[in-house]
């Protein structure tokens, strides 16, 4: 089989990584006025969808999105919708993308997160909250830059030599 599929990570590790990503997502960092904020939850979700596709997919994405909804005190389902799509899409292309070098995966990751942003924009319009600010489209780019970091942090040691 492909790389990594024999190294199962414990479930608690996956859950903890989602929790940590949720914290990072709502951390008031204020990078460039708060707009240039990587979507850590989406990144972690995509990572697990790539390397644990049997366990993490749309369902896990939905749960992670619901966690974000609760964390931000927003309308339930807003983030869950986008993250479901991210989970599903990442699962679909996981076999193709995970054989690429990390820097090439960045492009795919950005594309998947752009789907999330698009969903967000649609929800914005449908809820009549006015158009989503254009700066929100920076999220895929910001997340893309952080992808290698996420890969290095979450990969088991046995696979880490590939990224050095």
């Amino acid at each position: 089989m492909l790389i990594g599929s024999n190294t199962q990570r414990p479930a608690w590790f996956i859950v903890a990584s989602f929790a940590a990503a949720g914290c990072l997502n709502v951390l008031p960092l204020g990078w460039l006025g708060g707009y240039f904020q990587p979507d850590w939850v989406a990144l972690v979700l995509i990572y697990w969808c790539f390397w644990e596709p049997e366990r993490v997919g749309a369902v896990a994405g939905w749960c992670a999105g619901l966690m974000l909804d609760l964390l931000t005190g927003g309308i339930l389902g807003r983030f869950a919708l986008g993250k479901t799509i991210v989970g599903f899409a990442a699962n679909k292309i996981s076999l193709r993308l995970r054989v690429y070098p990390v820097w090439q995966q960045c492009v795919g990751v950005a594309a998947i997160i752009a789907l999330d942003t698009l969903t967000h924009a649609v929800v914005h319009l449908l809820l009549e909250e006015g158009p989503m600010p254009l700066a929100r489209w920076l999220t895929p780019a910001a997340s893309m830059i952080m992808w290698p970091l996420v890969v290095v942090l979450l990969s088991p040691r046995s696979r880490q030599h590939r990224y050095r």
Partner: peptide, 14 residues
């Protein structure tokens, strides 16, 4: 199927 159900549930929740 799971994906479609979840999409539906999310939209319903919103």
């Amino acid at each position: 199927l799971r994906f479609l159900v979840l999409l539906f549930v999310s939209v319903l929740l919103i």
